[in-house]
Amino acid sequence: MKKHLIALTLLLSGLAHADAVDALRDFGRDVKSGKANFTQTVTSPDGKRKKVSSGSFEFQRPNRFRFAYAKPFEQTIVADGTKVWIYDADLNQASSRKLADALGATPAALLAGTDLERDFTLKAAAADGGLEWVQAVPKQAESTIQTLKLGFKGKDLAAMEIVDGFGQRSRLDFSAVQANVALGAERFQFKLPAGADLIEQ
Rank of each mutant, 00 (worst) to 15 (best):
V21F: 04
E132R: 08
D46F: 12
F38G: 06
V134W: 06
L5V: 11
A16W: 07
A20F: 07
M160F: 09
A109S: 15
V42A: 09
L12W: 08
P107A: 08
E132Y: 04
Q60Y: 01
K50G: 06
Y69R: 07
F38Y: 11
T144N: 12
K71N: 13
M160P: 06
S44W: 09
D46K: 11
G154V: 09
R64C: 01
L148G: 02
A176K: 14
D26M: 00
D90I: 10
L111W: 05
L116R: 00
K83D: 13
L12Y: 04
V78E: 03
T41F: 04
R66D: 04
S95F: 05
K71L: 13
G165C: 10
G195R: 01
R66F: 10
S95M: 15
K83S: 13
V31E: 02
I86C: 09
K98Y: 12
A112G: 04
I145V: 15
G81L: 05
A194H: 00
R29K: 15
Q140H: 10
N92C: 02
L183G: 01
G34A: 08
I86V: 15
R66I: 06
G129Y: 07
A102P: 00
D26Q: 14
E161G: 02
T114H: 05
K98N: 13
M160S: 07
L12T: 09
T82E: 14
E186K: 14
D26Y: 02
F174D: 03
K51M: 13
L12S: 06
D22Y: 01
E132T: 05
A194V: 11
H4K: 10
A23S: 15
S56Y: 06
L103Y: 09
S96R: 14
G130D: 08
V163I: 15
H17R: 15
